[in-house]
Design a protein around this nucleic acid. Sequence first.
DNA 1: AACGGCACCTGGTCGC
DNA 2: TGCGACCAGGTGCCGT
Length: 285
Amino acid sequence: MPELPEVETTRRGIAPWLEGAVIAALEVRQPALRWPIPADLPSRVQGCQIGLLVRRSKYLILPLQNQAASAQAPLALLCHLGMSGSLRLVDSQAPWKKHDHYQLTLKSEVADNPPRALRYHDPRRFGALLACDESLEHHPLLCRLGPEPLDDAFDAAYLYQITRKSSRAIKTLIMDAHAVVGVGNIYASEALFLAGIDPRKAAKRLSRPACVRLVDQIKQVLQAAIEQGGTTLKDFVGGDGKPGYFVQQLRVYGREGQPCLVCQTPLRKVVLGQRATCFCPLCQR
DNA sequence: AACGGCACCTGGTCGC
DNA sequence: TGCGACCAGGTGCCGT
């Protein structure tokens, strides 16, 4: 599920409750996520105050201020939602459901009984919760990432430059986080359709105008999806528990065999980089 | 250096 | 109804 718009939706939904709050407890029921949740993480984060929430790529970053003055607190918590994860605000006493794996309980200043908690739910357990003990740009999972797609640094000149040396399919390239972050299978498919580019086309064969269109459509489709609260295919919910509504605007993703919304030609499906890829053989060249 | 393929894990769907 | 095969929003790591 979560591509950049879903992570950003989550960040915006939970930020008002987390920023400035103090962590009362981290409770881990299932540490076996993509990487194990470090066994000492609960004791290390207890008493820390949460700073301003940051999203980098599909990582959600909770900077920590060491309120407890215990020197072993991490600088930040790194959260990743994997393919099926979601973070929601719940009452800390709410019953744990199947596939709820951890919760961060917040200390309540005012009378708030029971206190609020951030609860992580993830059936496939591809997500992660890790300590960040160095500056973000030095963390091994973050230091090699490409530019943010919504930043000005991601522009047509940049895309044109990196495509020159790549013979991979353009869809595979834009889904590679070393090239640009946050573009997953849904939005890569959608942006290529909107830009009128065949997803199988070798990256180095894109013209300059094609790079202009693709950068433009990647930005537009991500921005539109954020405004719709992301895309809920199966079980994504934002921090408030609500699904995303962008699914109603998908033009090619998951529409194999159905008519192109522009020219009525049946959409085709191919596999690129082990990922299903739908496109219009007429509109995308 | 760049690239393709695999692995991690659960659950839903489809065909027999 | 049951069962196996296949598929799903991500991505680090391995081998070539």
